[in-house]
């Protein structure tokens, strides 16, 4: 009893010591820069002395939301980012789930396909962008030839160069690249379901369709939530694929411009456009806020949802 109280009273220094390295690194490389860039968004460059920033309150935000020239670009980027995210949610994750369902069924070639389908995810985005640009190229690309095999040559369009199709094309290429992640997560969740549950359902006369929707899916709902959240965060931070495929101006006519490319152009400048670091920080803060809202929704949902234990 006395020993217990003694250990309660002594300050648990060992916890501090063990936490310190990770905490210090995290604070120095994550928290401080984040707070710094948040605060930068409330400043603006001093016109009299270019080396100095002066406090400007919310003027950067006002400019971003209301300026008759910059606001359409900002809202456009946000809209495109939402489309980019929806394509991932509606195409990447259902197909990932479908593939995971097929893989979980077993079969001799399971490991082979699991590896093949995961490979694009570990490829460099530069490589992915380069390969897809070549495939879709109106001059050298094989897509025209492949369509020709089915006498569908007339359907060929320079998809990356048309305002109407460029964003969807880029989104689908990103889906192609990252489909491995949801697939593996769904797959591990599916194979973790105990066989007894599935056998019991079979004995009760449930068909595979019913088993999937009534037994398997409810059990992997936490993974569905996790995958959705990861997609959301990844998509609103996306930049690299669009930048390498369409350039910093995310053409044609800004039709593939997302938050990441808008931030890049503003913060680092682009050709004649001078870098505007404070406005760039404002865009970065907006990205942070959007992601924060998404994560909070996820956390609330996660707390409320029923997790089945087995």
């Amino acid at each position: 009893m006395t020993g217990y109280f003694k250990s309660r009273k002594a300050f648990p220094w060992h916890i501090v010591v063990f936490l310190a390295p990770a905490l210090i690194v995290y604070v120095v490389v994550m928290v401080i820069p984040l707070l710094d860039s948040l605060s930068l968004s409330f400043f603006t460059e001093n016109p009299a002395n270019v080396k100095e920033n002066i406090f400007a309150g919310l003027s950067n935000y006002k400019y971003l939301f209301t300026d008759n020239y910059y606001a359409p670009i900002f809202w456009g980027a946000l809209k495109h980012n939402i489309v980019f995210f929806l394509v991932h949610m509606l195409v990447q994750n259902p197909i990932g789930l479908l593939l995971a369902g097929i893989l979980a069924k077993g079969g001799k070639l399971r490991t082979f396909f699991r590896t093949i389908l995961f490979i694009p995810t570990i490829l460099s985005f530069v490589l992915v962008a380069f390969v897809w640009k070549l495939i879709l190229s109106p001059i050298w690309g094989v897509s025209k030839t492949i369509l020709g095999l089915f006498s569908l040559e007339g359907l060929f369009q320079p998809w990356l160069g048309l305002e109407s199709s460029a964003l969807i094309t880029c989104s689908l290429i990103s889906v192609w690249q990252y489909i491995g992640t949801p697939m593996i997560l769904f797959y591990t969740a599916l194979i973790a379901i105990p066989d007894e549950l599935l056998e019991a359902a079979k004995v009760d006369g449930a068909n595979p369709w019913l088993i999937f929707w009534k037994i398997k899916f409810p059990l992997i709902v936490p993974t569905v939530g996790l995958v959705s959240m990861m997609t959301f965060v990844g998509n609103f931070n996306a930049f690299d694929l669009i930048y390498t495929m369409q350039g910093a101006l995310a053409g044609p006519n800004f039709s593939t411009d997302i938050m990441g490319t808008l931030f890049y152009r503003t913060f680092f400048g682009q050709q004649q456009q001078m870098p505007n670091q404070t406005l760039g920080a404002t865009i970065a803060t907006m990205q942070f806020v959007i992601i924060l809202i998404g994560v909070v929704i996820y956390m609330v949902w996660q707390k409320r949802t029923t997790v089945y234990e087995y």
């Binding site: 190229s137 001059i139 320079p158 160069g161």
Partner: peptide, 15 residues
């Protein structure tokens, strides 16, 4: 060139 909307600068150089 056909599909010029999707033709890049490096493509033009090569053509």
């Amino acid at each position: 060139p056909d599909g010029y909307q999707g033709v890049q600068y490096s493509d033009s150089q090569q053509l």
